[in-house]
Nucleic acid binder design. Structure first.
Lengths: 187, 187
DNA sequence: GTTTTACTGTGATGTACATCACATCTTCAA
DNA sequence: TTGAAGATGTGATGTACATCACAGTAAAAC
């Protein structure tokens, strides 16, 4: 069965019987997208969050001058969406684009609330995930406030060495809040 | 009863009977601290998160050169701790200091897990809070990546006008990632 | 296989910001 | 009430970075 990987992902935190898992699984919709395509576009209504089975995506903001700012990456076993818009049921300010061919599983907001309501342990799973995500984002914010560019890059390299092999340096630079020329000059 | 305010805070999201609330309430410990004191110091084991009933606090990081970086504010009805350390049961990298005299309610990690486990709706409450916190932090990160200093300040002013009246401008500047002189020059 | 596109590194230039120093006013502590 | 400490604004100076331009290499598309 090809989605043992999603079951394993849940079971990193909670125990699930096969029946429980099949029921939860039935709320996800599989999506295949090719590289350099949109999974989500700014302005779209955001109804889904996405778990990445395979591939690599980025969430970006394009400012009024068209400049692209990378807010978030997602590789295998990560979740991605425009979270502010997803939680408030609003329209996206971010776009999500594939860097590689991807296989993702979409879970709508209503379905997520439904399975959390039906299973206390699924509620627990998503609270744990949210707490971890918040801690990681707070560490990133702290690095922005206190580290110089070299320090930020080295932290990212230490945290996600495999990720950085797969992403163009111009995208890494944008995620770090610097130009690709500046990042290039660090080496 | 002087902690209707904590009950009201929970009831913004979930319904609680008086007995349920009294039981939950019994897991919190009241702390009074005077202005310019530590609630948490870097290096301390982080066992508690804090809900603010009255007053104003900041969470700061001091880098190797002693420079202070403000990571988070908390005024009434906000929660604050060193989240990465709280979730991982580790030692604080942040210090939490009072800007005004404060009354806070401490909830240990173990007690929070306990009341979440015992009440599905408390689990839901904290998942909702975590989701909101993540969305707010992602918006802040995005502002850092894409707005100039003036834009960041104006966003903060629009979001929390009352907060900015209560905080020294040097602390606001640090939270925005700029020097107090630069912030002063924006006016 | 060839052409086009993407990616990366480097040089030159201008500027927004940090830093340091100082002055003034307000608030706090004794 | 007085002196000390804190907060804020302003001027001067130096620099790390963005931006623009260009060149070369690798990968993708046809």
């Amino acid at each position: 069965m090809d989605d043992d990987q999603l079951k394993k992902h849940f079971e990193e935190i909670i125990a699930l019987t096969n029946d429980e898992y099949e029921y939860i699984r039935s709320h996800f919709k599989r999506r295949i997208i090719k590289r350099k395509r949109y999974l989500l576009q700014a302005g779209d209504k955001v109804t889904n969050t996405f778990w990445v089975k395979k591939g690599l995506l980025v969430a970006c903001y394009h400012d009024e001058s068209g400049k692209e700012h990378v807010v978030q990456f997602a590789m295998e076993n990560w979740w991605i969406t425009d979270y502010p818009a997803y939680f408030s049921q609003g329209n996206a300010t971010l776009s999500i684009e594939s860097i590689e061919d991807c296989e993702v599983y979409a879970l709508s907001f209503d379905d997520r609330e439904k399975i959390c309501k039906e299973f206390h342990k699924v509620e627990y799973f998503f609270r744990k995930k949210a707490n971890s995500g918040y801690a990681a984002l707070q560490r990133r914010m702290l690095s922005f406030l206190s580290d110089d560019i070299k320090g930020r890059y080295e932290l990212l390299l230490k945290q996600y060495p495999a990720l950085l092999q797969r992403v163009p340096k111009s995208i890494v630079a944008s995620y770090l809040g610097v130009s690709r020329e500046t990042l290039s000059r660090l080496h």
